[in-house]
């Protein structure tokens, strides 16, 4: 199965990269642009079915390696 993990900076954590992109968007004429946040997408193939056991393993993987719970949130989609 294919897993897509979306990692984003926590709403309470400032995102310097997002702020820089927002600044560029405004200077390109998109004056109303706001709340820009930059995250990352991680995709991979893994054996298993979409069941509670697999999701438990994915939670551990996302919480430990793919995101840092102090500064980031994650969610994933399974295809």
């Amino acid at each position: 199965m294919k897993v897509t993990v979306f990692v984003s900076p926590k709403p309470t954590v400032l995102d310097p990269q997002g702020a820089a992109v927002e600044h560029a968007m405004k200077s390109l004429g998109h004056a109303s642009a706001q709340g820009v946040r930059v995250g990352k997408t991680i995709t991979f193939e893994i054996d298993g079915e979409d069941d509670p056991d697999t999701r438990k393993k994915l939670d551990v993987l996302c919480d430990g390696l793919l995101s840092n719970p102090i500064i980031e949130d994650f969610r994933y989609e399974i295809d």
Partner: peptide, 16 residues
């Protein structure tokens, strides 16, 4: 910090 041996996390400098 990532290993949890110290508290906190380090992110991008605010000046970029």
């Amino acid at each position: 910090c990532e290993a949890g041996l110290l508290p906190g996390a380090l992110i991008r400098n605010n000046c970029i």
